[in-house]
């Protein structure tokens, strides 16, 4: 990869010449770089059409959308759809499921990659280290459909290995898939299985970036490996870990639709119905577009507030937030 040698030396001239503020700067930049602006047209059009138009389309949450009148022609109904959702008996269970599932995912999958990275960092046998890293990384590239299918096959009381294991321990053949109480554990376990190697990468990089002088000092002080991990490694990756945790907490309501929907069956629905899957069913299977948009908007706003709130909190505590 090319390295930016001496970029600093040339930068001032570039900046001096082109960095004019206000409209003169704009006109100058447009004249000089019209090709670049032209280049950006297609991607910007993409963002407008597929990201910003949907944001404005979300106003149908406050309307009774019908196909004939379209998004802007339909009648305003205020908060009707929100009130309907809040007074729906399914509201609290679904909100609770969404929150519990994603909080569980965030908290349970947080320490595993750290442990993996710390352990890998100790190993000097290159072959072993690379093998473990390559293998644990691999599931990240397997599709959600396949991971869910594998889990289902694995846990199936008729075919899978899990039945043999529980029978061996005298528990009988437990049907994990049809008992709603297992849903969250299955979801989280398969999530950790799929992402731990991938998530460990960032910690491995953070560990590699720790100042070698610290290890030298620890060695001089006679620290053993465990003490070195506790006193050098863990403090060294703490900032990274905090950012990851904050991102996770901030995105607690943004849990994905794909996996929960695939794991769902009529028996575990009491715990597996979360806001995204419910939105999909209301919107596309029952074609209640306005109601579904209201639910989606509700979820999006909660998530935005959470993210901004957590970021502000972190900024206050540590002086540096995500942005």
């Amino acid at each position: 990869m090319p390295v930016g040698v001496g970029a600093a030396g040339a930068a001032p001239t570039l900046r001096d010449r082109d960095k004019q503020r206000g409209w003169p700067g704009a006109r100058r930049s447009l004249q000089r770089h019209w090709q670049l602006y032209l280049l950006m047209l297609a991607p910007l059009l993409y963002f407008v059409v597929f990201k910003y138009v949907p944001m404005t389309n979300a106003v149908i949450a406050f309307k009774d959308y019908n196909v004939v009148d379209g998004v802007w022609g339909s009648d305003w109904v205020g908060l009707k759809h929100f009130e309907r959702f809040f007074s729906n008996p399914i509201f609290w269970p679904v909100l609770r499921n969404t929150f519990l599932l994603s909080a569980y995912v965030v908290l349970a999958s947080f320490p595993v990659p750290i442990v993996l990275a710390l352990a890998l960092n100790e190993v000097r046998l290159r072959f072993f280290k690379n093998t473990v890293q390559m293998v644990t990384y691999a599931p990240y590239f397997i599709s959600t459909v396949v991971v869910v299918s594998m889990t289902i096959l694995f846990l199936s009381p008729r075919l899978g290995l899990a039945g043999d294991v529980t029978q061996f321990f005298g528990l009988g053949r437990i049907d994990f898939l049809s008992d709603p109480n297992y849903f969250r554990h299955i979801y989280v376990a398969s999530d950790i299985w799929q992402t731990m190697g991938y998530s460990a990468v960032i910690y491995i990089a953070a560990l590699a970036g720790i100042d070698p002088a610290l290890y030298e000092a620890a060695r001089v002080d006679g620290a053993n490996r465990w003490q070195k991990i506790v006193n050098v490694d863990i403090p060294g990756i703490m900032p990274t870990a905090m950012i990851i945790l904050v991102l996770g907490v901030g995105n607690v309501m943004a849990i994905g639709f794909e996996k929960a929907y695939l794991f769902q069956n009529t028996l575990n629905i009491s715990q597996s119905e979360i806001i995204p899957t419910y939105t999909y069913k209301v919107g596309l299977l029952s074609a209640e577009f306005s109601q579904a948009s209201a639910i989606g908007l509700f979820n999006g706003v909660i998530n935005l507030v959470l993210l901004l709130g957590v970021n502000a909190l972190v900024k206050r505590l540590t002086g540096s937030g995500l942005w």
Partner: peptide
């Protein structure tokens, strides 16, 4: 900012479907 903002907030499944 215009680009990155779409990471924070999205219209949702149905509004995108309408587009």
């Amino acid at each position: 900012l215009f680009v990155v903002f779409t990471m924070l907030f999205a219209g949702g499944i149905i509004p995108t479907y309408l587009v």
